Simulated assay, not measured.
Amino acid sequence: MDIDNTCGMLIRQIHNLLEKMSNKDLKEKGLTLVQVSALFSINDTAEKKVTFKELEKILHLAQSTTVGIISRLEQKNLVTSYIDDNDKRIKYVRITELGEQCCKEAEDSMLKTETFLLSNLTEIEKVLFKDLLEKVNNTLK
């Protein structure tokens, strides 16, 4: 069996290359992939804010890691954090206008990368490829 040609290894290689491309793009902006993931998670909420606890669960990260990510995003003025007026135990993080702009730029970059990734496929192959990836993903959930 050629281990380098198994589906799992091909998916891993694609993931690694996409991550490398993303990190190169983000490094120019002084961000990491997990920081952008946090920004997207906050930006995708109706009120553009989440509690630290909610963000930990969304990102599947430890409390200390989440605090560090939010701290670095605050230093870049991409988010603000504050304590709930009614319950001092609850801490919120809200995305700023600059953070929302960062999400828009990251989204544009992701779209460009995906267009490049799928550029050798026909329209039918693109639909089939996405459907198959969703099936595999659902199997693993």
Rank of each mutant, 00 (worst) to 15 (best):
K48P: 01
K49D: 00
K20S: 12
G99W: 03
N86E: 11
T51E: 01
Y92R: 02
L98W: 02
G30K: 07
K29Y: 13
C102W: 00
K29H: 08
V36P: 03
V79H: 05
T80M: 00
I70G: 04
Y82E: 04
K24N: 12
H60A: 15
K88P: 10
I42F: 03
C102A: 14
K49Q: 07
A38S: 13
K20T: 11
T66A: 08
L59V: 12
I69C: 02
I42L: 04
V50F: 06
M21C: 05
D85A: 06
N23G: 04
E28L: 14
N77E: 15
G99D: 09
K29N: 07
I95A: 05
A62T: 08
F52Q: 09
R94H: 11
L98T: 11
N77I: 02
T80S: 00
K91P: 00
D87K: 09
V93C: 14
L98K: 15
I83R: 14
F40N: 09
I83H: 11
N43A: 09
A46S: 10
L59G: 12
K104H: 08
D25V: 03
L73P: 06
I95H: 04
Q75E: 15
H60C: 13
L78C: 06
Q101K: 08
T66R: 01
T45N: 05
Q75G: 12
I83G: 03
E56N: 15
L61Y: 09
I58E: 14
K48M: 04
K76P: 01
L33Q: 08
Q35T: 02
T65H: 07
E56I: 07
C102G: 00
K57D: 14
K88E: 13
L33S: 13
S64A: 15
F40R: 10
D84I: 06
D84Y: 14
N23S: 09
K24V: 05
I69F: 05
L59A: 12
K53S: 11
V79W: 03
R72N: 15
N86F: 13
S22Q: 07
E47P: 00
I95S: 02
K24C: 04
T32E: 11
G30A: 07
D44F: 03
R89G: 01
D44W: 02
A62Q: 15
E19P: 00
E74Y: 00
E56H: 12
Y82N: 01
R94K: 15
D44T: 04
E47H: 09
K53E: 13
Y92L: 03
E54A: 11
L33T: 12
I95T: 05
L39V: 06
E19W: 04
Y92A: 01
K104W: 02
L18W: 01
D25W: 06
A62G: 14
Q75L: 14
D87W: 08
L18I: 02
N77T: 07
V50D: 04
K53F: 14
V93W: 04
Q63A: 13
Y82R: 01
S22W: 07
V67W: 05
N86V: 02
Y92P: 00
D84A: 08
L55G: 11
Q101N: 09
Q101I: 05
E97G: 05
